[in-house]
Computed example of a mutant assay.
Amino acid sequence: MRRLAAFLAVVAVVVGLGASPAAAVTQFMKLWQEPGDYEARFPDIVKLDDGRLMAVWYRATGHTGPNGTVQVAFGTASGSTWTWTNPPHPALANPATMANKDMRDPKLGKMKDGAVVLTFFVPGDGVYYSVWKPGWNYFTDPAKLTVPGIGGSALDEHGGVLALDDQGGATNQVLIPVYNNTGAWFVRATWRPVSDPRLLVADAFQLAANSPADGGFTDTYTEPSFVQIGGTVVAAVRHEQNNGTVSNGQPVKVLKWNPYTFTGTQDYYDVQWLPVYASSHHLLKTSDNRVLFTFGDKGVALRPTYGILIQNPLQPWPETGLKKVAVYNSGASDQANPSSVEVSPGVYFTLAYNAKAKSATEGSGTSPNGGTLWVMRSTASEY
């Protein structure tokens, strides 16, 4: 009873300290607060086969900074215990392998055998991946992802590796979302649990190509992320003009295709435009085959985090009638990059963070919660 009372007291303090979320969403707990000038940015979270939760984030002194690292923490199935019994530590067993490299945008993808693939990118150096297996506390030494036809050093990523369901004789097939200065892509590869390379790349296909647009502006497509519903992959791609300097960007692009019959000579079907100015988004397939779409809304000041529960993701995404739920607003302009997980049927955790305002570009004033990674709780009924 004493531990329960103490925990409830901690939750009460956390809810009182943080920025005010919408009434429908609760600030469940503080996962971690980085000390000093460090911050916990760009988090990702996944449920492991044993029911526990795994979270990773970018530990650095700013949005872009020298030699940021990736931290990992493990939580109980309820998410109520993280730092008390499982304090975060460097994700890599041998951090020296990435010395002097900036490990940005860590993302997690769980394979069908329970292993987890961590991806991140190093600016100007490309995308790397590393592997965790059940029973381990750390990830392996990273390997660089090299993709024939689109290179390696210029690649960035934002979504996690998607392990496809075994269908039609296809086993251990994965899709890897990446982007470069030509647009957004997906890479096809085979997951090999005990062989090197663990991700054996086959080929790559472009989801959306950067191109000039009306008015002389350049359309850019970045940050693809995927989910699988039955035999269909659904992708969301960030769309902006002139790197976001024109207005508030453009509505996110939504595409669908059958990964088992895709040959590269056919178009993606039902290409949609969702009327949401989304950036740094995340897609979560729920247990009832809906999609929780969380994102930073570029149409709102400071780009806070919102969520939409897509009821029929395989049908055309609706142009009207969307219920956009406010999930978190840190009060600083440098935020969003959410990630969500379903901890029990219809109950979702979304990670959000407070940046430490050090300049006019990161908001006015320094939040007392700066550098904090929060766990926000919502339910399906709230969307």
Rank of each mutant, 00 (worst) to 15 (best):
M1V: 14
F7G: 07
L8H: 12
A9G: 04
V10P: 13
V14A: 11
A19D: 10
S20E: 12
P21D: 00
K30H: 13
L31A: 10
Q33P: 03
E34T: 01
G36A: 04
G36M: 02
E39S: 10
F42C: 12
K47Q: 08
D49W: 02
D50F: 03
G51D: 00
H63P: 00
N67D: 15
G68M: 07
A73R: 06
S78G: 06
T85V: 13
P87E: 11
P95C: 13
M98G: 00
A99Q: 15
D102T: 06
D105L: 05
L108C: 05
A115N: 15
L118K: 08
L118P: 10
F121R: 12
V122K: 01
V122M: 01
Y128D: 05
S130F: 06
K133A: 03
G135C: 08
W136E: 15
F139W: 00
D141W: 08
P142V: 12
P142L: 03
I150A: 06
V161A: 00
D165Y: 05
D166C: 04
V178M: 02
V178C: 01
Y179V: 12
A189F: 11
W191M: 06
W191S: 03
D196R: 07
R198N: 15
Q206C: 03
A208W: 05
S211L: 10
F217T: 15
D219K: 11
Y221D: 09
P224N: 06
F226K: 11
Q228A: 02
E240C: 08
Q241W: 09
S247G: 02
S247N: 15
N248Q: 12
N248P: 01
P251G: 10
P251F: 02
V252Q: 03
L255H: 03
L255V: 12
Y260I: 01
Y268H: 04
A278Q: 11
S279I: 10
H281V: 00
T286F: 01
L292I: 06
F293E: 01
F295W: 06
P304H: 07
I308W: 00
Q311A: 14
Q311L: 15
N312G: 09
Q315N: 15
Q315Y: 14
Q315K: 14
W317D: 00
P318T: 08
E319K: 15
K324P: 02
V327N: 01
A332Q: 13
D334I: 14
S340F: 08
V343N: 09
V343K: 14
V347A: 09
Y353K: 09
S359R: 13
T361M: 15
G370R: 09
E382H: 03
